[in-house]
Design a protein around this nucleic acid. Structure first.
Lengths: 363, 363
DNA sequence: GTTGGCACTCTCAACTTCCGAGTGCTAATA
DNA sequence: TATTAGCACTCGGAAGTTGAGAGTGCCAAC
C-alpha cells in the first residue's frame, strides 16, 4: 500500500517531535503543531493506519506513538529535511577542525573527539589504510653499539627507531645492510616478507649477529601497524545524557561494547565518495549490542585510495538530520586536508609545506 | 582520645564488610563474623563510640554503620592487612604485562587499560617526562624536494619526519643545516630555542627558503610533546559496575571529569620510590568532582629521573588493599622495564635488544 | 564491663488509589 | 466520502499507605 502525502507529513511530525522530546507523541500535539489543518481526530485515524503499516507503534494502549525502525528509515530516506548548517556552525567547526589538524599525529582520534563534542553522542573514528609498503630505507650509524632505522613509507610518512646493541658493529656492515634492504624490502607488502627473504638477506650481508632480523622485525611491525585499521572511540559517557540510557545496565552494556573497539563497522563499508553518510537504524545493525541503537557514519578519503570512517552512536531517536550534516562536513573537511596529493597527514602546520591544501583557499 | 584495640578490630570489620557488600553494616553481622568474642550489644556500644569519634556514620537512625573518609583513612594507614598477591595472580599479571610491553609505543596507555581490567575500576596513567633534549640530528636528503629529519632524543628515542618542499634544495644545503643544528640545537631544552637562535642559524646556513624554521618548528614540537605529561584514561565505563554510581547523573559527572584528562594528579605528586602507593580518600581530593570518590595511585620510574603515575578511581568503598597491591605490582613491573639503563621503551621484543631487562630473569 | 531483652525508629518494597493523557468508536456534519 | 466533535474507556505513573524487618539505644541483670 502506498503511503499518502498526508501520512508522510504526519509521520515526519511524529519523528521530529519524538526526537525533540523523547516522549511518545499524541494526536493532539501534532494537530497543534500546525503543519496540517485538520483536527486531532483525523490525525488519530491516520496514526492508527500508520501503526497498522508498521511505521509507528504504541508502547501501550492509550499512549502516544513512537516510530519503529521502519519509521525512522522512511524518515531518513524521504522525509527529513536535509539540514543545512548555519554559517556560524560551519565557521565554528572549521575553526576547531583547523585547530585540531594543526596538532600532529593523533589527528584521527582528535577528530573523533571533536565529532563527539559537536554531536553530544559517543563518536568513533576508523582508519582504514590499505596496502602500505616501504619506499626507502636509511640506516644511520651512531656508534659501535647504536644505529637508527628510518623507514619512509609509501604513505609518505617516515618512521624511525633507535636500536641499541649488546655487540658492536662496524659502519660497513650497516652500509651493506642498508643497501640490501633498499633493494630487497622496498615496494613489498608485509605479507611478502618471508623468513626466506630474511634469511637470504642475512647471508648476503654476512650478518652473524642477527641485525637483519632486528631490522626486518621493525619493518614488519611498522607495516602491520600502518596497514591495520584502528578504531578510536570517544565520549562514550555522553550516552548517559540520553534518557533511553538512564538504565545503568543498558548504558553499561553499550559502553563496554564501544570501548571494546570498532567491531561496529563491517556493515558500514562500501561508502564511496567522501562525505557520504550512511545511517544504520536499530536492528539494521549486525552487532547484537546495537540492535536498539542507531549508527551514523560518514566516510573520508585519506589519500592513497584509502578511506576511513567517522561516526556516532546513539539511541534510535537521534537527530539524524543534524548529526548527518555535521558528520558529512567533518568528513569532507578531513578528506580535503588528508587526501590531496601525497602530503603527509601530520604537520601541515607550516606555511612551507603547502602541498595540496584546500584548493578553495586563495593564498 | 586513643582508640582501643577492640575498636580497631571492629572498625576494620566494618570497613571490610562494607567494601564487600556496599550495605551499611550492623552490629549483628560483626558479632557473627567471629573475629571478636562478644555479643552484638557490646559491639553496639563500641559502634556508638566510633560514630562519636568520627570514624563511622549512620545514614539514618537504625541503619547500620558506614565508614567516613576518616574511617577509611585509619583503615588504610593502620588496619588493613596488606594484601599479598597470590602466585597465580602475579603470574597472570606478569604474563599480560609482558604481552603489553611487547607491543610498541602505546605502552603507557595500554598499561592503563590493563590496570582498569585488573581492578575493574576506571584507570589512569600519567607520563611525567622531565626535560628532554635533542642528542643528535640527522637530515637525510631524499630528492630535490624532499628530506627527512631524524631527531635522537636524550630519552633514547628517535623521532622522524618527512618534509616535502615546494622549492628545490641541493644536497650541500641539507648537509650544512645538519651540522649547524647538530652543533647549535643539541643538548638544549625547548625553552632555550629562541627566535634569535633560529635566526642566526638561518643566516649561518645561508638559508633563504625558510628550511631552518621548518626544522626548528619540528624540534620544538617534538621536545614539547616529549616533555609534556599526558594522561590516559581507560575503562571509565566500569564505574557503572559500582552500586554507588547507579545514579546516571552522578556517574556521568565523574566520567566526564575523567574523560577530560588528568587534572586529578597535582595532589598525587611527590611519591618517591617506584611502586609506592598513595591513597586519596573522598574529601582529601582537591578536585570537587572527586570529593566523594577515592583515588589510588602508584608511581613508576620511567628512567631519566622521570616518574609517571598509574592509578584507579572508584567509590570511597574500594578494596584498597587489593587495588593497592595490584597497582604497586604494575608500577614496579613498568619501572623495571622502562627505567633500567637508557634502553628505549619500545620494542624489547627482540632477543638482541636485551639491555636492562628484568634482572631476575636468567637467560 | 558485658549481656539479653525490649521498645522504638526508619527504610524499603509492595500495594492501592487516582489523575490525566491519549485512545477508539460513533454519530453528526460538510 | 472525508472530517470532526464528543464521549467512554484504558492504562501508566505519581502519590499515598501500609507492613515487615533490620537495626538501634537503653536498661536492668549478671
Amino acid at each position: 500500500m502506498a503511503i499518502s502525502e498526508r501520512k508522510k507529513k504526519i509521520l515526519a511530525a511524529v519523528v521530529d517531535e519524538y526526537i525533540r522530546t523523547a516522549e511518545p507523541v499524541g494526536s493532539k500535539a501534532i494537530a497543534q503543531s500546525g503543519c496540517l489543518n485538520c483536527s486531532s481526530a483525523t490525525i488519530r485515524n491516520e496514526l492508527a493506519e500508520l501503526v497498522a503499516m508498521g511505521y509507528l507503534e504504541q508502547p501501550h494502549t492509550s499512549a502516544g506513538r513512537v516510530p519503529t525502525p521502519m519509521g525512522y528509515r522512511m524518515y531518513v530516506n524521504e522525509l527529513m529535511e536535509k539540514q543545512k548548517l548555519s554559517l556560524e556552525e560551519t565557521e565554528e567547526m572549521n575553526r576547531r577542525l583547523n585547530q585540531k589538524l594543526q596538532e600532529l599525529d593523533t589527528t584521527i582520534s582528535d577528530v573523533s573527539r571533536l565529532a563527539s563534542q559537536l554531536t553530544d553522542y559517543p563518536a568513533l573514528a576508523l582508519t582504514a589504510r590499505s596496502a602500505v609498503t616501504v619506499r626507502r630505507f636509511d640506516l644511520i650509524y651512531v656508534d659501535a653499539n647504536t644505529f637508527i632505522i628510518v623507514l619512509t613509507l609509501s604513505s609518505s610518512v617516515a618512521k624511525s627507531k633507535l636500536v641499541h646493541l649488546p655487540v658492536s658493529v662496524d659502519q660497513s656492515m650497516v652500509q651493506r645492510l642498508s643497501s640490501l634492504f633498499n633493494s630487497g624490502f622496498t615496494g613489498i607488502e608485509e605479507n611478502q616478507i618471508t623468513p626466506l627473504l630474511i634469511n637470504s638477506t642475512e647471508r648476503a650481508a654476512d650478518d652473524t649477529m642477527g641485525l637483519t632480523s632486528v631490522i626486518a622485525a621493525f619493518v614488519i611491525e611498522t607495516l602491520t601497524e600502518a596497514s591495520t585499521p584502528t578504531a578510536y572511540v570517544s565520549g562514550e559517557n555522553r550516552l548517559l545524557n540520553q534518557p533511553e540510557f538512564r538504565d545503568p545496565d543498558k548504558a553499561h552494556r553499550l559502553m563496554s561494547y564501544l570501548s571494546g573497539g570498532g567491531y561496529i563497522l563491517p556493515p558500514a563499508e562500501g561508502l564511496e565518495s567522501s562525505g557520504e553518510v550512511r545511517v544504520l537504524i536499530g536492528p539494521e545493525n549486525v552487532a547484537e549490542e546495537l540492535k536498539d541503537s542507531s549508527v551514523i557514519v560518514a566516510s573520508y578519503d585519506a589519500g592513497d585510495n584509502t578511506r576511513g570512517l567517522i561516526g556516532v552512536v546513539g539511541p534510535t531517536r537521534m537527530d539524524y538530520s543534524a548529526v548527518a550534516a555535521k558528520l558529512s562536513f567533518l568528513a569532507a573537511g578531513l578528506s580535503r586536508r588528508l587526501s590531496s596529493g601525497s602530503a603527509p597527514p601530520e604537520g601541515m602546520h607550516n606555511k612551507l609545506i603547502i602541498k595540496g591544501d584546500d584548493p578553495n583557499e586563495h593564498r
